[in-house]
Write a protein that binds this DNA or RNA. Structure first.
Lengths: 371, 371
DNA sequence: CTCAGTCATGACACCGGTTACCATCGCCGG
DNA sequence: CCGGCGATGGTAACCGGTGTCATGACTGAG
């Protein structure tokens, strides 16, 4: 068909035809027009309201009528227009996922866990990666939410820890769920990972193996999880008569490179630690790299423990002992909780935060101290 | 405030008040009602149509009027309702991303690349992970698209290779872009990764290093990329007088486990290969594992090359030589191409497929053959 | 000065659903 | 036999924007 090569000329000529846009030209392509609720009503010989009742499962429709209408709907393959519904319902049936996390498997797994629950409830998921250091950080998110009138949002750490953001969401009157490591909000808004307790489990593991010179590469102090893991770890070691001296604490950035650098500093000490608890798996991979370059054998010369149980953990050689977070489940729980909020149910008085407890997955990288 | 604990009782009692739903109770919470185009019109003392013109940058508004309205819009913080716009425009401004790919960084990077371009054009991204082996695979996707009346979808391999799915999309009259390794469709619908040429680059690299006994662990034959990489590799070797004998070709599954298993088989041969080209980085990690268990040193005893340049590649020790795919760019290009289609522009006669050419990133895992 | 052509704007229908409210119908007891 | 009630279905208005078309003011040519 002869297409006008009207790229976007429409806007330029101040003297185009009245206000005709190139819309129809493409719209007409579709052979059979989509059915609307009116078509169904006509076919079933009832009013559109009755059809609407059937769609929304209103009990005020005679069984026979309902059956007839349902039949027709199925036959012609009618789907109510989501935007029209959204307009009338004042609900978009869209949930946002805001993240700022370089850990791809974390995000993907959460996303997939959440989607399962969302779909079941009739919602779809819109994603929004962001950069919390950007100037337009907040306005971007605001635009994200208002642009499609999202019914609610979920946030992953570290953005989930941002109090200003949470404030903004409250002002926007936008229901939200924060995945987070500490009780920084109304428990109804939280999915909490018990990082403190998890870190204690690492301490116990290392103590049992007999380590006494233990180091930790923590995440950035601006991250709640970093603090929680550090304190949980340190306290648990103390409980067992072990200490985590300041010179054995390095502040990394939850990244591969920082892990390597911190490990380099730690392994240069004498005596050097026999075990390093890395703040996350990426950091642990950095430790591996430094050990590889320095000829330090894992786990013979050095025990390494990570956190997350990302795919990376089992790919490394030797495989990495780490803390597994049930991220998929967290996604599901976050979604369920959010949907309940959006629907206005389960908004009762005092509901505890939803919590998850990571657990240790022992692999090859941890063993008794060498010498 | 006294909340009716009306969880969802609304549906049960056949004799509730007419048909009142619990909607308003939650809606009223917001202190100041959202402004609509009517409010703006009233404030500016013009018709809503004129406000609409300003919003849509119609040239037919007097400069002074435009300024006044713009001012008011900004002052009261008005945002046009997206669902209402969508309804009137017959466009949802939503683009879907359909994937079925266990490689999280791949998906995340593509997603982020695409989002940049989509945002700029005023679209949002809705994600749909799927399981191509599920019975409801197709109907799920159909529902996904119709449920929110998506304006278009992007598909990642391997689902992108499914011809039945593409057919369905055409029938649904839903614009789509397939990210793929071969010209299986109208070029306007494709973002093509030149896997054949890339694999040839690997062959060249190995040949230059002096390898003669070279093996390949390919992906599943049902994957287009697996075939392309195999043929490209094999042909390029042949061009250089080298051969890829059948016993040095193993069919994996693009997974860590299959990589380990295939490597085990290959390394059991005698003489064994001095280099293995793994179909992707995951597979390469599997090769590392087997080498680790067998005490085979990389790269001294064995050169390993991956494909993807996922984060894993640089985390492994030794770091993995691999082919880098510009995934983020692919996301951006796919989004731009799709937006153009949706907008009806750039639909000219013959447009070549958009192609990308992965390139080699040489790291520590490749070197001259040992003995 | 008149007339045609532009530009700027408004009135109104419409997108495809929903709710509020009203009308009708069948069945019941008084 | 009639009024009343609950069950059903219809009508109109509305959600918040956009398209179409008419109209009035302004401009420049003849």
């Amino acid at each position: 068909m002869p297409r006008k090569s009207a790229t976007r000329v429409v806007r330029l000529p101040a003297k185009a035809r009245p206000e005709s846009r190139a819309a129809e030209q493409t719209a007409v392509v579709s052979a059979e027009r989509k059915h609307t609720i009116n078509d169904i009503a006509r076919l079933a010989n009832v009013s559109k309201k009755t059809v609407s009742r059937v769609i929304n499962e209103s009990p005020f429709v005679r069984e026979e009528t309902r059956k007839r209408i349902t039949e027709i709907i199925k036959r012609v393959g009618f789907t109510p227009d989501p935007q029209a519904r959204a307009l009338a319902f004042r609900r978009s049936f869209l949930i946002g996922l805001i993240y700022d996390n370089p850990n791809a498997p974390y995000v993907i797994n959460f996303q997939e866990g959440a989607l399962g629950a969302l779909r079941r409830a009739g919602y779809e998921l819109v994603v929004h990666p962001c950069d919390r250091h950007s100037e337009e950080f907040l306005s971007d998110i605001r635009r994200f939410i208002t642009r499609q009138k999202l019914d609610g949002v979920m946030m992953l750490p570290p953005v989930s820890e941002n109090p200003v953001l949470a404030d903004m969401l409250r002002k926007l009157d936008c229901p939200y769920i924060r995945v987070i490591s500490a009780a920084l909000d109304d428990p109804r808004n939280l999915i909490m990972s018990m990082d403190r307790q998890s870190a204690a489990e690492v301490a116990e593991h290392l103590a049992k193996l007999g380590h006494r010179r233990i180091a930790m590469i923590m995440g950035p102090r601006t991250f709640r999880s970093a603090i929680e893991r550090l304190e949980g770890f340190s306290n648990a070691l103390a409980d067992r008569g072990l200490s985590l001296p300041p010179e054995f604490i390095a502040e990394g950035a939850y990244t591969f490179e920082s892990g390597a650098a911190c490990a380099d500093a730690l392994l240069a000490r004498s005596p050097r630690p026999t075990a390093i608890f890395a703040g996350n798996d990426e950091t642990a991979a950095g430790v591996y790299r430094t050990a590889y370059l320095r000829g330090v054998k894992i786990p013979d010369d050095l025990t390494v423990i990570g956190f997350d149980d990302s795919p990376l953990a089992s790919r490394l050689c030797p495989s990495l002992t780490t803390m597994r977070q049930p991220i998929r489940d967290m996604g599901r729980m976050a979604a369920e909780k959010l949907v309940a909020k959006v629907a206005g149910i389960a908004d009762g008085p005092a509901i505890a935060a939803t919590t998850v407890l990571p657990h240790l997955v022992a692999r090859e990288s941890s063993g008794p101290p060498g010498k």
